[in-house]
Amino acid sequence: MRRVLVLLFISLCQMLAACAQVPVPAAIQSEQTPPIKSLISLMTQRLEVAPLVAQSKWNSGAAINDPAREQAILADVEKQARTIDLDPRFAAAFFQAQFDAGKLIQSQLHQKWQKQKQAPFSPAPDLAKEVRPVLDQLTPQLLMVLKTIQPDLCNTGVKQSLQTATFGQTDDEVSKMAVSTLQCP
């Protein structure tokens, strides 16, 4: 019995070694999502929330810029970054760029709505109950992908993906702002 187990183990090792030498077909490789695609997708999801924030602030008359809230979020981002061994300054700079891109979207929409004499939205999204939970859910996902992508920021493919990235319906200025901190060190 013992001899049979040893022979099975040796056979299994040989099969695994043979499989390791077989190249992965392109069709299977294309099904895998590289971290840069995940990052762009998550950034897009986050920026797609900005119009909802703009509607809520339009209705309430709240200021687009909320430095106190941003600082609280950035402190939490830095704390979360430390727990996953990600540079907290890099994480905070990235999220500040996301805030700035989101505020730019909100400002653009508010300017448009002022010209159109937009009435209050009905119903307006509830920031606390509907919008912030979405953002809060995206934050740890973004941090994990940032940790994965940070060492590859000098990779030619990653740099090209970031330079050509578009984030839903955003314009070039918003896109450039969103990726501004994702530079090769």
Rank of each mutant, 00 (worst) to 15 (best):
D136L: 13
Q21M: 10
P51I: 01
V22K: 13
L12A: 12
Q96I: 01
K79H: 15
W58I: 13
S41Q: 15
F121S: 01
D136V: 09
R82P: 00
V22A: 13
C184K: 01
D126E: 09
S60M: 07
I40Y: 09
Q114V: 00
P133L: 02
A20T: 01
Q111H: 11
E70C: 07
T148M: 05
L143K: 11
L42Q: 11
Q137F: 10
P35W: 05
D171W: 08
T139E: 10
P120W: 06
R82F: 01
A92K: 02
Q21C: 10
T44R: 04
F99Q: 06
I84T: 02
P120K: 10
L86S: 07
R46L: 13
Q163W: 00
Q55A: 04
N59C: 09
Q45L: 12
A97P: 02
V179A: 04
A91H: 11
V24R: 07
T166S: 13
Q98I: 12
L135E: 14
S60A: 03
A101T: 09
A97M: 05
V174P: 09
Q114T: 13
C154G: 00
W58E: 08
Q118L: 08
E173H: 15
Q114I: 03
V24M: 14
R3E: 14
D136Q: 15
A26Q: 14
F167M: 07
L146N: 08
